[in-house]
Amino acid sequence: MGTANQKEFINRIKMALGKPFAESRQKADLFNSEMSAESRAILEHIKNRNAAERKKLLETLIEAAGPINLQVISCDDISAVTGAIAGLVRAKDPEWGDQKSVVAWAHPLVERLNLPAALSEQKVPMFVTGSKSTADEDLRQQVIDAYIGITSADFCMADTATLVMRARPGQARSVSLVPAIHIAVIKLDQIIADLKELFALLKWDPHERREGLTNCLTFVSGPSKTADIEATMVHGAHGPREVHLFVISA
C-alpha cells in the first residue's frame, strides 16, 4: 500500500508547488554530489591539526563541559584512566538495588583499560555488550542492571562538549543511556571542533563516509536534564545523572 500512497502524496505536493515548475527542476541543485571547496578545506584543516591546536580544542571542550556538568578528565596515559574508573566504581552507589555491576562496549580502547582485572578486587562484575554469543535478552538485562556504562565515542565536538557515537556491533546504544552513570573514554585526536567538521567528515572523508551515519548516530552533551518542574534544573531525568569523559593525551 505504501507506494500508491506515496505517489498520490508526492503528486499533491507537485500540484501545490505548481507542476511545470516541479518538473523542470534539477536534482543536482539540491544534493551536492561533488565535494565543495569549503568541505575540502575543512577536511584538510582537520588532517593537519598540530599538537598545540589539539590542546586548544581540549581547552575549548573543558570550557564547554562546565556549564552542562560534564566531567572532563584529561589523563596522560591509559593506566591513569583505569585507576580513575576503578575509583568511581568504588565511590558511587548503585541507583536501583544494591548490587554493583558495570557494562561496557566491546571496543579496542575500552579493552585496553583492562577493567575486569581492575574491578575484580572490588568484586564488581563487568559485562561486555560484545559478542552475539550472549542472547539479546540477557544482554538487555545486563545493561538494565548495571549502574555504570562505559563507552568510547567516534568523535567529540569541542564547541559544545558533545560525544558522537555511531551504532555498531558490540557497541550497544543503551550503554550510554540506561545506566545511571556514563563513562566515556576517548583519545585526544578524536576531538574535533564542531558540527561543521563532523558533517564534513561523515559526508566526505573517504574513510568515514564508508560507514556514514550508520542507522543510529547519537550526540550526547553531558548528563540528562530537565527543568519541567518550576524551571528548576535537575540532572538525571531519564538518561544518566552523571557523565564522565576521560581524554587520553598520550
Partner: peptide
C-alpha cells in the same frame, strides 16, 4: 542552549549484527 543533551539521527531498525535498538522502524 548551544546543543541539546541528546540528538539522534535514526535511519532504520537494528542491523543483524547489532545488539540493541528496535527491530522495526
Amino acid at each position: 542552549q548551544n546543543m541539546a543533551t541528546y540528538v539522534s539521527y535514526i535511519g532504520g531498525p537494528r542491523q543483524a549484527d547489532q545488539v540493541d535498538g528496535p527491530q522495526e522502524f
